[in-house]
Design a protein around this nucleic acid. Sequence first.
DNA 1: AGAATTATACCAACCGGTCGGTATTTTTTG
DNA 2: CAAAAAATACCGACCGGTTGGTATAATTCT
Lengths: 198, 198
Amino acid sequence: MQIRSAETKSQIIGAAYLLFAQTGYDATGVAEICQAAGVSKGAFYYHFPSKQALFLELMENWLAELDRGFEQSIQDAQSVPEAIEQMASTAAKTLQSERAHLSIILEFWRQAYRDPAVWQYASAPYRRYHRYLTTLIQQGISDGTLRKINPEVAARVFVSLALGLLMQAIFDPQEVDWEQETQQSVRLLLNAFVEEAS
Amino acid sequence: MQIRSAETKSQIIGAAYLLFAQTGYDATGVAEICQAAGVSKGAFYYHFPSKQALFLELMENWLAELDRGFEQSIQDAQSVPEAIEQMASTAAKTLQSERAHLSIILEFWRQAYRDPAVWQYASAPYRRYHRYLTTLIQQGISDGTLRKINPEVAARVFVSLALGLLMQAIFDPQEVDWEQETQQSVRLLLNAFVEEAS
DNA sequence: AGAATTATACCAACCGGTCGGTATTTTTTG
DNA sequence: CAAAAAATACCGACCGGTTGGTATAATTCT
């Protein structure tokens, strides 16, 4: 039956997700994953050709989910600053809900640095967000909402801000309310970027 | 004599630095490090109690060097914005010179996430920079150079920007001139933060 | 039955770390 | 000063344990 098969596969991915986030890719053995998933090694290698392949699929799923969250939120924004603020809010909320397993991102980055195939998947989102933000800011400038700043650079600042906050959230999960911190940071920037009422 | 001893030790650290940056901590074997350093395994374990200890020492050295670069540059700045700009410039230059081995930072972060001892060393600098930037911005506000922004938040933005740009520089070492990109980003922010001439 | 799926047993490679012993340098002693 | 003793620095074979992956048998589903 395909139902059971699919079930075991997602069991494996789920267990691997938790273990990779908890202990890291290298330190997590295949046997360990199988045990946590309640599945044998044979089943594992029936569904995945290798540990690395499992990792890639896991990452694809994760990033796709992240994208899904974004696309829903971007829809209805009245102004450019509001759109950016909403993007930030969505990102913060998504990450907040997964804050216990954010370290999986460290694993993504590490693998991405070594394996070109992983790099392709991992780097695409950032490029896309940068491009999207650039056009958004351009639009804000031409409709007079934003001051005449360099859209490319400003977009890079936002992407960097997101990455930087993410890093800090990974390492200080409780110290600070990162959702609020994100909101404050973005507002600070937007206030500094909006055209003064004349 | 201690000279030979110190020599071999630094040979080991040097070789480990390159290999860790190239292949990662886990994937780099002790034997491999020894071979690259032209030294035996016995010598290795004479100088370091464990692979992990070597890593820690390597990281301490690296971070201390980074600090040294900063302290020299911060000295003579005429204004608060100039001080920040100079900090950014120094950071960018330092990282530019080591751009081929920046991925060692990924290793730092990963180990820091697991080992509390490593975490202490790795997180201290960024806390320090955040604190320093906060007072710097506070000063800029009280002397009328900067607008009335939240110093804590603004400092966080700068730290995040640095982390974010660093991440991107690690993954796209050639695509962009990150030294220039850093300068542009910081200037954009500073321009947005300075008090308009009245 | 037979194809798909899961379980068990196993392997070869590798890895961090140890250990008995050797070479080299420094210190002590006659 | 030189011989002896001690301390330091280094060598490389070796070990216990782990790991990703495989071969093959058992089971389940259609």
